[in-house]
Amino acid sequence: MPNPPAERSRPVDPPFSPILLAGLALAPVPPRLLQPLFDAALNVVRRRHPDILDRLSDYPDAVIGIEPVDLPFVLLFEPRPDRPVLTVLRDFSGVRLSAVVRGPLAMLFALGEGRLDGDAAFFSRQLVIEGDTEVILALRNAVDGAGIDLEADFRATLGPIARPLIEAARVGGHLFRRLSRDMSLIRQALIGPALKSADAQSARINDLERDVAAMRRSLRAREQRS
């Protein structure tokens, strides 16, 4: 059985971007006010891409956490074949997750549309996966295989209301790329001292882990001699 991931272990640092700023503005908004938007999104997916749920039919009881690290809320996806649910929440507290995927919203969007290779994103460490890797992989493959085009899907379903949302996401992605480098400098200046102390801490953890490994080896050697 997979280990449930920690409720909210070390998140990916949010990149500085308009999405982050928009997220700060959204922070006081209760998630339940956003819920109708996500219900609509899920309906679009069900109608236009039924094969996604078909590809996830081996995981009817999965509870998948999706955490856009630059927004003040998280998503919960339950791919139950008869009644799939996409819930928006403030955080994962009290939720028993099968797995969670974390990353900047622009990257999660790009992944969803297959514009970005999931393996490449993970290899570069911009996405973090915890918990049941198989469920996340199934979701990735299902979504990628459906050939989603969020813009077309939303336009087809929501009509003109979709436009500002799509524009926001697109501009966000563009600015995100431009600004991320500058932001890393600012971030370094602001929290450099704290990072340094964290570095020292992880160096100590590294030392301890090496000691444990060495002790394991010597213990094994001793057991073999006795």
């Binding site: 882990e209 444990v212 490994a213 060495a214 002790m215 394991r216 080896r217 094994r220």
Partner: peptide, 8 residues
């Protein structure tokens, strides 16, 4: 051949 954490 051992793992990084010292298991055979």
């Amino acid at each position: 051949v051992d793992t990084m954490d010292g298991r055979s």
